[in-house]
């Protein structure tokens, strides 16, 4: 009997052993569930606009899905559409940024139309706007952008930041 067992062992030495991956599977399963959860929970409410380096803040307010005005070091965008350049804004006289105001007015009209069709005029996202400003932009640009937003009917402004 003993001889028989040892014989069998010896026979197994030559055979290719199976890789034991059960423990790795455990890790991967946990990782997969974790990633799936964060993927669902986050939802892409606000995506950072490329080329804009947001400032860091301790604010804990959750971002909401709204219209986004992005102010990079050189350009001003509404959604993904180029509206104006920062230099034009700095050089321009007056507080209002005309091209931005025009586009915002259109967007506002569209929002109002949708709200009217829905029959819910007091929609949460109405009149809300998110400003994603680069950390290097001067205050005068931000001031003009905020003023323009307010004048176009978007008085509830959220400044996007990166959470510490």
């Amino acid at each position: 009997m003993i001889r028989h067992k040892s014989k069998r062992k010896r026979r197994n030495i030559g055979k290719p052993q199976k890789l034991r991956i059960t423990s790795m599977m455990d890790i991967l399963t946990v990782l997969l569930l974790f990633l799936l959860k964060s993927f669902v929970a986050e939802g892409e409410v606000v995506t950072p606009v490329p080329g804009v380096e947001l400032p860091v803040s301790a604010s804990k307010d959750q971002p909401v899905a709204t219209l986004v005005v992005a102010v990079s070091e050189t350009d001003i965008l509404l959604g993904s559409e180029l509206i104006s350049t920062v230099r034009e804004v700095i050089e321009g006289t007056g507080m209002k940024i005309e091209p931005l105001a025009a586009r915002l007015a259109e967007a506002k009209e569209k929002q109002d139309e949708i709200a009217a069709l829905r029959g819910t005029p007091n929609d949460d996202s109405e009149g809300q706007i998110t400003i994603q400003g680069d950390r290097e932009i001067p205050f005068q640009v931000l001031q003009k952008v905020m003023y323009t937003c307010q004048q176009s009917g978007f008085a509830s402004i959220s400044l996007a930041v990166i959470k510490i």
């Binding site: 971002p63 509830s156 959220s158 930041v161």
Partner: peptide, 16 residues
């Protein structure tokens, strides 16, 4: 696709 930088906002209300 995971988001590692968490974004938040600072809310401001401007007088109308």
């Amino acid at each position: 696709s995971a988001v590692f930088v968490e974004m938040s906002v600072i809310r401001m209300n401007l007088p109308f």
